[in-house]
């Protein structure tokens, strides 16, 4: 396998993990713009553990993810008190605080960055990504996953059905932070060097874009979104300077043509549901706002 191809695959796998980190709270209707901050906690946490205590990365990365989840637990109570645009701003602030803290912590290298000596290769990265995909997919077939999406659709009715709305929102937020932490840990141990600047708001926004463009209706959306929008810029490499212009134009066109994202429930039904053909006269298109 060529080094270039391998590099793209690693990037793809890490982006998919990040995307699921953003997807979990989004599925419950919460936009987390601090996702890069939680990724940073996972990256620095796991790197510090593997460097200082010589803990194997395969163990250090999940522990780093637990740190990210712990930070999310600490901020969840005040942050999740806000909603909508204010929630997005509050999570953005959390991300900024994490970054500022890292920049000022000497033992994490501060502004100079942090070299990571332990290394994980493509198979480990893919293994973690696959595990995240499977866990999230299964989770969305549980009562928990169904209730999360119900909370997004209609908080009031979900509450009347007995869904513990706040508890479920907190769980999604914390779990999403931990998943982003796994992505951060993989990044740190594959690229052998991390710096606070990488985990900026731009990263958070790209991750959220993967999810929104992929579609939030089903758990496949983040996978498709992250894949398409990691590979597309690579395919456009030929047109060097125009590459990102073409890419951005593509994003805008997609938003106009498929506001529900690339992959909707209706698409899935058409792709996979060969046993139950659509009922005549019943359109299968779906989504809110229709």
């Amino acid at each position: 396998m060529s080094g270039y191809f391998e590099g793209v695959l690693v990037l793809l796998a890490i982006n998919v993990v990040f995307a699921y980190g953003a997807y979990l709270p989004l599925a419950a209707g919460q936009l987390n713009l601090g996702i890069a901050g939680f990724a940073a906690v996972g990256a620095y946490g796991s790197a510090y553990l593997s460097d200082t205590f010589a803990i194997h990365p395969i163990l250090a990365i999940p522990i780093g993810a637990m740190f990210a989840g712990l930070i999310a637990l600490l901020v969840a109570v005040p942050v999740l008190r806000t909603r909508g645009i204010y929630l997005a701003l509050a999570t953005f602030a959390v991300g900024q605080i994490v970054r500022a803290a890292i920049l000022n912590l000497e033992f994490l290298g501060g502004a100079a960055g942090y070299p990571v000596s332990a290394f994980v290769g493509l198979p480990v990265v893919l293994g973690f990504a696959l595990a995240v995909i499977v866990v999230v997919m299964v989770l969305f077939a549980t009562r928990f996953g169904i209730a999360l999406r119900a909370v997004q659709d209609d908080e009031r009715v979900a509450d009347l059905m007995g869904v513990e709305v706040r508890g479920f929102q907190m769980a999604a937020f914390i779990l999403g932070a931990a998943v982003a932490g796994i992505g951060g840990g993989l990044y740190a141990h594959h690229f052998s060097y991390i710096e606070a600047q990488y985990f900026n708001i731009g990263l958070s926004i790209s991750i959220v874009l993967y999810v929104l463009l992929g579609g939030t209706q089903t758990a496949w959306g983040p996978l498709i979104g992250a894949t398409v929008f990691t590979l597309l810029p690579e395919l456009l490499r030929g047109s060097a300077s125009l590459r990102y212009v073409v890419f951005a134009a593509g994003v805008i066109v997609l938003m106009a043509l498929r506001p529900q994202g690339l992959l909707t429930r209706a698409t899935i039904q058409r792709l996979f549901d060969w046993r139950n053909p659509p009922i005549p006269g019943v359109p299968m298109a779906s989504g809110r706002g229709q």
Partner: peptide, 14 residues
């Protein structure tokens, strides 16, 4: 007030 993000079956499971 059904949940548009859920299928019919998922609404009932809810």
């Amino acid at each position: 007030r059904l949940m548009p993000h859920l299928s019919t079956l998922e609404n009932v499971i809810l």
